[in-house]
């Protein structure tokens, strides 16, 4: 039942882990273990983020943060798989899913690594805008690392595939990463609040504007 041992295996021996995915070894148990462990890590970080507001927000953010990452992944998976297969990829949808989950698990682990820092600022700083910006920075940093990790592991290999197919699939991957970021940010905006602005607890806010405009407003309110 030890689902976290799969993540430890990924951290300890990444090459062997990725090789097993490429060979299709125990994909189902990997998928489930990565889903469970990344869900737990995201829930933990979500709970810390929500603690800025209230216990209800802790519960809400602990559910919303895993939802944000895992649903984004599910929404974008078919696009990546279908386009890749169309241009010569031989990996199955389960292999694509496992690789994506691996990248998402890396993001989850990185977020957990930042958890003590976030907790420290949660205790010592009582400024909503600062806390939100700090977390946006952490999410951006972990997201970039996770996405570049995914790009690295998904990049088609020139040794195994025809040159034309490799070029097209690399471009598809780049396009897909932009799409992934776009879907993720929009879903994040739909599921907000994660931090909970001062005042009454809100389960979901009214849908308006976009993430970028909200970040810009926060920067303006910081009074440099």
């Amino acid at each position: 039942m030890n689902y976290f041992s799969t993540v430890i295996y990924l951290l300890r021996d990444r090459q062997a882990f990725l090789q097993e995915i490429n060979q299709g070894v125990k994909l189902q148990s990997k998928i489930f273990a990565l889903m469970i462990s990344s869900c737990c890590f995201f829930a933990l970080y979500g709970a810390i983020v929500g603690a800025f507001h209230s216990p209800l927000q802790v519960l809400s953010s602990a559910i919303k943060l895993p939802a944000l990452y895992l649903i984004t992944l599910l929404v974008c998976l078919p696009t990546l798989y279908i386009f890749n297969v169309l241009f010569g990829a031989k990996e199955s949808i389960a292999q694509h899913f496992t690789l994506l989950l691996t990248a998402v698990s890396v993001i989850a682990i990185l977020l957990c690594g930042f958890a003590p820092v976030t907790l420290f600022f949660l205790i010592t700083v009582n400024d909503y805008n600062f806390f939100m910006l700090l977390n946006v920075a952490i999410f951006a940093l972990t997201g970039i690392i996770g996405v570049s990790f995914f790009y690295h592991i998904m990049k088609p290999n020139a040794d195994n595939d025809p040159e034309q197919g490799v070029k097209v699939r690399t471009n598809i991957l780049r396009f897909w990463l932009v799409l992934y970021g776009f879907v993720g940010s929009q879903l994040g905006w739909t599921l907000r609040p994660f931090f909970g602005s001062p005042g009454k607890f809100e389960l979901f806010r009214h849908r308006e504007g976009s993430l970028l405009s909200a970040v810009w407003n926060s920067i303006r309110h910081l009074h440099f």
Binding site: Y3, C39, C40, A43, I63, A67, L70, I71, L74
Partner: peptide, 12 residues
């Protein structure tokens, strides 16, 4: 854990 996971996916 499966219950939580399913709940997460039912949010949309």
């Amino acid at each position: 854990l499966v219950l939580v996971l399913i709940f997460v996916f039912t949010l949309p």
